Simulated scan of single mutants.
Amino acid sequence: MQAKDNEPLLAGLRVLDLSQGIAGPYCGAILQQQGAEVIKVEPPGGDWARNMGIERDGFSAVVLAYNAGKSGLCVDAGVDAGRAVLQRVAQQVDIVIQNFRPGVVDRLGIGYETLASLNERLVYVSISGFGPDGPFADMPATDNVLQAMSGMMHANRGATGVPQKVGLYLADIAAAVYASQLACAALYRRSITGRGRHIQLSLLEACAAIQSSNILDAVFSSGLSPARSATAPGGVFRVSDGFITLATLNNGMFTRLCNVIGATHLLQDERFGSNQSRLAHAELLNEQVAVQLRGECLAHWLPGLKAADILHAAVGNYQDLLANTQVSHAGIFGEVRNAGLAALPRARHPGCPRSAAAESAPRIGEHTAKVLAGFGFTAREVGELVASRVVRVSEHAGK
């Protein structure tokens, strides 16, 4: 019974990942980390994300993070024979993922209507920037565009009031998480009806959804500037050797904070007697707390804040995260290990069991022959497809 309980949740599921970039590939990566077999399809020129940021030996950090553990299949979908290959594979998978602009996959003969007619159990996931139709449907959509349009940059404005991009691909990441959940929900519905479903979602929807409380707060404020924080004191404060973040949820926590930082005089000020009154005077209160904190170092403040059960953390970087003892204890990171590259940390999907086995991201067409054989293509058929350049086999295949 124990062995069965440890079986990956999506073991036996097959996914055809036609997507490029971040949102679609990360959706596929989430399913892969839960046990699905994911086939990463790339055109002969490769996923455009291979050239995002620093590129080493044909890989970027984005490709490594969101494609490790997948099998690589390279197909030229711009020719009839390439489309036929993808249609044949799609007949035997459970999920297809694509994140092209509306209409592109239909023109390529691999849209939902075409593939669903070949496989009625298919769950087809379409991720777009703004949705399948409407005045913005054909606009190019990138993470920074969606962060700006959705109010996310405004919510993240700095002390000077200048809007700032959140320092990660949050729009894409949010869309990927929602897409993977919807795909699994569609699989549940399929288990009842026997039929698949076309799942359609946009980065714009995802950005709105993750900001629901912020948007409601803006409406509650009746045109006034909404509170930058739900409690006060709170925020990021400078100490002598770095930064620390604090939050106080109630009067008890505020009292304990004042005791720890040596600011009991604040407890006598009626302006700070409740959360609502503290919020009304948040700027003044935060200035008072900042004065108390800046004269000492992290090592001075952290033990007392922990002992007093106050919400706090030192503001660290990614190296600090990787060295964190709780992170190590929980096995939050596995490894991506590609030939020619040093072993790199990759966060496992939350809730999935840790694994000691290192995974690698595929090169363009690295597993083409193996993948096609697994879908019933004969060696002769594969050879003909390779010879006619319909599919591509990496020079690293089999190594």
Results as ranks from 00 to 15, higher is better:
Q2G: 14
Q2S: 14
A3K: 10
A3G: 03
K4D: 13
N6A: 14
N6T: 09
L10T: 05
L10N: 05
L18F: 06
Q20C: 09
P25D: 03
Q34Y: 05
I39L: 07
K40L: 11
E42F: 06
W48M: 13
W48K: 07
G53V: 08
G58D: 03
F59R: 09
F59S: 06
S60F: 08
Y66S: 13
K70A: 12
G72D: 06
G72W: 01
C74E: 04
D80W: 00
G82W: 01
R83M: 06
D106Q: 09
I110R: 02
G111Q: 06
E113M: 05
T114Q: 13
L118F: 02
L122N: 11
S128A: 10
F130V: 12
A137K: 09
P140E: 04
M153V: 09
A155C: 11
A159M: 09
K165G: 01
L168C: 12
A171G: 14
A171Q: 00
I173H: 10
A174P: 02
Y178R: 12
L182I: 03
A183V: 03
A185N: 10
R190L: 07
T193L: 01
G194V: 06
R195T: 12
I199S: 06
L203E: 04
L204V: 08
A206H: 08
C207P: 04
A208M: 13
Q211G: 04
I215R: 06
S221V: 00
S222G: 11
R228V: 07
S229E: 03
A230V: 11
G235T: 04
S240N: 06
D241C: 03
I244Y: 09
T245Y: 05
L246C: 10
A247C: 08
N250H: 14
I261R: 09
G262L: 10
F272R: 05
F272S: 05
S274H: 04
H281R: 15
E283V: 14
N286F: 01
E287R: 15
Q288A: 15
V289H: 05
A290R: 08
Q292I: 00
Q292G: 05
Q292S: 15
L293M: 10
E296P: 00
L298T: 11
L298F: 01
L298C: 12
H300Y: 14
G304K: 02
K306E: 15
D309H: 11
G316T: 13
G316C: 09
D320L: 07
N324I: 04
T325E: 15
Q326G: 06
H329Y: 13
G331N: 01
F333I: 11
E335Y: 05
A339C: 04
A339P: 04
A339F: 03
P345E: 03
H349W: 14
H349A: 15
H349K: 05
G351S: 04
P353D: 02
V371N: 08
F377N: 02
G383M: 07
S394T: 02
A397M: 08
K399W: 02
